[in-house]
Design a protein around this nucleic acid. Structure first.
Lengths: 158, 158
DNA sequence: GCCATTAAATCCATTTTTCAGACTGAGTTG
DNA sequence: CAACTCAGTCTGAAAAATGGATTTAATGGC
């Protein structure tokens, strides 16, 4: 992997690596790569599902939040559903679908990166096993289920 | 973790989970959460380091690419350096710092998500161990180095 | 039924960002 | 010197984000 401390890296000359439109990552950033969408998903993962609560947490303009939530529902990352606690009025909540829950991993990876590189003190949230409380981290795993250092990997193109 | 198929999830009532400004993830999306930045980092990881090559791959407006690269250098994710292959003119290249290389993991996680949920056929790029060529994937790893299913984890707040 | 309240939006005017494409300037090749 | 390549900058139009005010729909209390 090209790396600033490895000495004079030579650039690939001419060719596109993978056409952008073909790459899952590009499609992903197309769908969710903006200022708010991932933060909204983070809210949902934390269990915040109501419009106003999200708005209060994020401070995003209501119109933007509204549009983003609609979009997230459209692409199947969240669903909007009514719910009613006994004795309370009916409300709406936005809940992650399984497609949305799968975003937890990229999100945790990003959180991990931010906590490592963008702050000096201890991170405010940690990923732990629910049962034991033992901390976990995001990493690469081999076919045999063993952790793999990222430096020992490449992209293989088809 | 709240999940659309788990039945009527009840929303947390009032409180902010972690103040946005405190969260590594929020800081991260602040720095790199836009349409192009992650794609630029992807280019760099693939080994594309020259302005024009990136522009051709991404199709981003040159002014935006220019601004993003400048920003990435400012925040220490990339560095700009001159280089010269014998017999060629001197050029510039943008290379990832170690801080930038660490973005590979969130990026791979996102790619994995996109490949799983945003396409039906086989993904165009795969993460493999350099030595053996065996495929890897991004996942959660326990303290003991064992893979952990994401459903068995939560966020622990401090 | 009528009023106040709350949740969930939408609307508006202003500022910021994006975009496509033309242009610039430095260094290289013929 | 003319043409070409690379790495940008500049420009004006279009799109998106912003903070704030307003709207709508569903209560619960009186």
């Amino acid at each position: 992997m090209a790396y600033a401390d490895d000495g004079p890296t030579v650039s690939r000359q001419q060719k596109t690596v993978v056409p952008l439109s073909e790459c899952g990552m590009a499609r992903a950033t197309d769908l969710i790569g903006d200022r708010w969408t991932l933060l909204i998903v983070r809210e949902a993962l934390y269990g915040v599902t109501r419009f106003d609560a999200m708005q209060a947490d994020l401070g995003a303009p209501r119109s933007v939040l509204s549009a983003r939530l609609k979009h997230l529902c459209d692409i199947g990352v969240m669903t909007k559903r009514p719910y009613k606690k006994p004795g309370e009025r009916q409300r709406h909540q936005y809940v992650l679908t399984s497609k949305g829950v799968d975003l937890a991993l990229p999100l945790m990876a990003l959180m991990q990166w931010g906590d490592k590189h963008l702050r000096d003190d201890a991170p405010p949230a940690q990923i732990v096993e629910r049962a034991s409380g033992a901390p976990c981290h995001v990493g690469l795993i081999s076919e045999q289920g063993a952790p793999v250092s990222i430096g020992k990997t490449t992209f293989k193109l088809h």
